[in-house]
C-alpha cells in the first residue's frame, strides 16, 4: 500500500470540513475524488502532505507516518508531487528554472544533472521549446503542464492534483488532461480532485465521492457512474451532468 489515510479530521473555526476520512491508494493506482464544491476535497489533499495540518487522524506514505510530529515533513513533501488549481509557477523563473529549482535546492542535484532532468520532463509535457519562457508568457494550459513537469521532475511516489483544470479556459483543458492521462497510463500513482467526469470515467481506477466532509461512496467508475449505490451520489451525478454536459 502506497498511501493510507485514516480518519482525517479538520475544522476551520465552527465548521468541520473533514469529518473522518479514510481511504488508501495502491502503487500505480489513479483515484479521482469528486463531489460538490466546499466538501473538503482540496483540504483533504492539503492535509495529506500537511500544507494544512489535520486536527486528527493519520496518514502513511508506505511505512512512514507523515502525520507523526517526528517526521521531516520537507523530505516527505519532496516525494509527493502537488499540482495546484492556479498552477503557482514561480513568477520570477523561466519554465526550465521552475522545474529545476527543486532538483537543485531540495534534491541537491548538480546544475547540469538538474537541467538534463528538467528538459526531459518539459519534453514529456510537450514544452521543451518553451524552456526559457517566463510563466507570464505562457498560456494557462502551458503553465499547468510546466507545473506538472515540475512535480514529475522530483520523481515523486505520488502526485496530488487539486482541480488542475478549473482555472483554465475550456479550450485549454484538453491538453492538460491528455498529459495527465499519459501519466496515469505510465504507472504514476495519482490522486485527482476534479469536476471533469469524462476524465474520471476513462482514467480512474476508482472514484471517491465526497460530500460534506465524508466519503459517501467509492468504487470502480462503471459502477459509480452507471449504478451508484447511494442516492446522494446519483443526485450529484445528475446535477453535474446537467452543468458540464456529461462525459466528453
Amino acid at each position: 500500500m502506497l498511501l493510507r489515510v485514516e480518519d482525517l479530521h479538520k475544522r476551520y473555526g465552527k465548521e468541520e470540513v473533514l469529518k473522518g476520512v479514510s481511504f488508501s491508494l495502491e502503487k500505480g493506482e489513479t483515484k479521482v475524488i469528486i463531489g460538490p464544491s466546499g466538501t473538503g476535497k482540496s483540504t483533504l489533499l492539503r492535509c495529506i502532505n500537511r500544507l494544512t495540518e489535520p486536527d486528527r487522524g493519520r496518514v502513511w506514505l508506505e511505512d512512514v507516518e507523515i502525520t507523526s510530529p517526528k517526521v521531516n515533513i520537507n523530505r516527505i513533501r519532496a516525494q509527493i508531487g502537488f499540482v495546484f488549481q492556479d498552477f503557482n509557477l514561480f513568477t520570477h523563473l523561466t519554465a526550465l528554472d521552475n522545474v529545476r529549482l527543486g532538483l537543485i535546492r531540495v534534491k541537491g542535484m548538480s546544475k547540469k544533472e538538474a537541467t538534463a532532468r528538467a528538459m526531459e520532463e518539459l519534453a514529456r509535457v510537450g514544452l521543451a521549446d518553451k524552456a526559457n519562457a517566463y510563466p507570464a508568457e505562457l498560456s494557462g494550459g502551458q503553465q499547468q503542464r510546466v507545473s506538472i513537469a515540475r512535480a514529475l521532475a522530483m520523481d515523486p511516489k505520488l502526485i496530488l492534483f487539486d482541480e488542475p483544470t478549473s482555472a483554465l479556459d475550456p479550450e485549454l483543458i484538453g491538453e492538460v488532461l491528455a498529459v495527465m492521462e499519459d501519466l496515469a497510463k505510465s504507472g504514476m500513482t495519482m490522486l485527482v480532485v476534479t469536476h471533469e467526469m469524462g476524465f474520471a470515467r476513462t482514467v480512474a481506477d476508482e472514484i471517491i465521492f465526497m460530500e460534506k466532509g465524508v466519503i459517501v461512496e467509492q468504487g470502480p467508475p462503471e459502477q459509480i457512474f452507471s449504478s451508484p449505490k447511494q442516492p446522494r451520489t446519483a443526485e450529484f451525478l445528475r446535477r453535474i451532468t446537467d452543468l458540464y454536459g456529461g462525459a466528453r
Binding site: L51, R75, R77, F84, N88, L89, G102, V106
Partner: peptide
C-alpha cells in the same frame, strides 16, 4: 501571492 509559498513548500522547501 501566497500560492508562491505553497508551491515552494509543496516541493519540499523549508
Amino acid at each position: 501571492p501566497t500560492g508562491q509559498t505553497l508551491a515552494a513548500r509543496a516541493l519540499g522547501f523549508s
